[in-house]
Structures are given as C-alpha cells and as structure tokens.
Amino acid sequence: MLKRIGVLSPLLALLAWPAAAQTFYISAIPDQDESRLMERFGKIAGYLTRQLGVEFKYLPVKSYEASVTGFRNNQIQMAWYGGLTGVQARLRVPGSEAIVQGFEDQAFVSYFIANTGTGLERSQAFPTAIAGRTFTFGSKGSTSGRLMPEFFIREAFGKAPDDVFRRVGFSGDHSKTIALVQSGAYEVGALNYEVWNTELAKGRIDTRRVKVIWQTPAYPDYHWVIRGDVDSTWGGGFKERVRQALLSIDDPLLMKVFARSKFVPAKNSDYDPILKTGQAIGVID
C-alpha cells in the first residue's frame, strides 16, 4: 500500500500544481561540475526564499540552450547566464532584463591552457604557436569558453578555428576542458578563469600536466537575467525586490560558492559588446 502511494505521489504533485504555481524557478547555464552548481544554486534559492517569502527553486538543465529555452517558455523566471546566453535570452523574451552581475564579471577573462607536453609557455602576446594543435572549447554556447576565445583566435589568425587547428572540439563545460587538456585528449583549450582558479585552489589540477599560457583581454560576462512579467505574477515591485535581495547579500560563504566578491547592478546595454561579437562570429543574427 505504501509503495502504491509512493508511485502515486507524482500524480498528486501534478494535481496540486495550482497551489504550487507561486514557485519561482531559477536556473543557470550548466558551465561546470553539477555538484558545484547544485550547491551554489541550492544556497541562493534558499537565501531568496528566506528574504522574499516566495518559494525559489533551482531547476538544473543539461545544456546552455535548454536554460534559454526554459526562460523563453516561462518555465524559468530568472537565470544566471553568461554574456552570450544572456543576450540570446533577452533577444527572445522582450521586457526581460539584466539586473545584477558579479563584481568580477564587469571585467572577466578567459584562460588559454595547454598540456605541458606541448612545450608551450606562458606569454603576454597571443600565443600564435597554438596553430596546428588540437583545441577544445567548452560549450558551444559559452561566452568565456567559446565566444570570446573564438573572437581572439579569429583576430589573431584571420581564419576560423577549424582552419587554424588540427582538430576542434567542444568539451561541454569548463571543468571538462581542464580534464581533457590535463589528460592530453586535447593539447590546448580555453576556459573561464574563475573555474580554473577555483579548481586550482581545491587542488584538483595537476600543474605538472596542464598550465595557463595566455589570458585574454577583459569583457563583461555572467549576470542574472529576470523576465519582465514577474511583477504581474508575484506582485508589483517584485523584480526590484529580487534585485535588492541579490545586491544586499552579506553572507561571505554565499558569495564564496559563487566565486564572486559581491554582486553589483547591471543593465542590458552592459552586454552590447557581447552582442556585437556574437554577430561578428555569426552565432547571433
């Protein structure tokens, strides 16, 4: 009998949907190890629930585009996007808004990393010696793992990555990029510097096998994007309350799981450079 109730419970949950309709779903691009994402967004959902008296839940997704599709379809009301996914999402949901970014995201950078077996050394100038190597980006929709690295590669060589490297791959996320270059599956890769620093601090990188060889110029990156119609569901001024709640986080542990020193205000036009880069590379119309 108990077992049957267990089986029925999803149905009950489905029937009980209208009562739960006030749940506010947040999500994020799956840019690194899922266990880290669960910790990070579980904590922030708990914080927002306590601050705003509305239930916030984190909805994990499997791909960058799935987080944008969910946002567009109003199954996700707010998401932590990279520069590119944020632009993609706002282009598809009129009225949506970039409200808050990380302090570090105002001037974010990517690292180019290389397997030490390649003999490549760190340089100030763009490392043109990477031509002809095997190279991995992160996700196809990543700002720091694909868009900006590809932009700088095209700028340096005047050609598409496919024509520069012996082989080009997409690892899926930044943690995997480190693992692949470290194991030698790829000789060179590009990733989000914050993920590199975090994994390095945790001692999960074997620095005898993989090292940073170049740091890109700065660009704007991660930020919270919220739908424009949240006020009509959760009451007037709700968007503003969410923004204030994010800006007034004073729990250092919470900011630590975000690998940010603090959150600062953001606005849509902060990401115009990303939009232009996306158009230049041809991933945005």
Binding site: V7, P10, N74
Partner: peptide, 28 residues
Amino acid sequence: LAILALPPGMPIAWENALRFLTADIVPA
C-alpha cells in the same frame, strides 16, 4: 502504473507550442 509514475515536470504552455510551429521553424 507507468503513466502514474511519470515525473511531474512543468505545466505546458500551449502558446509556446504554437509559436514553435508557426514562427520558430519558419525559415528566417
């Protein structure tokens, strides 16, 4: 039992399905 055991998931917004069929997949 299988139908009952399906995960609850998200409610369906039919306007999304309609938009997909009438706008999204129409060549740019």
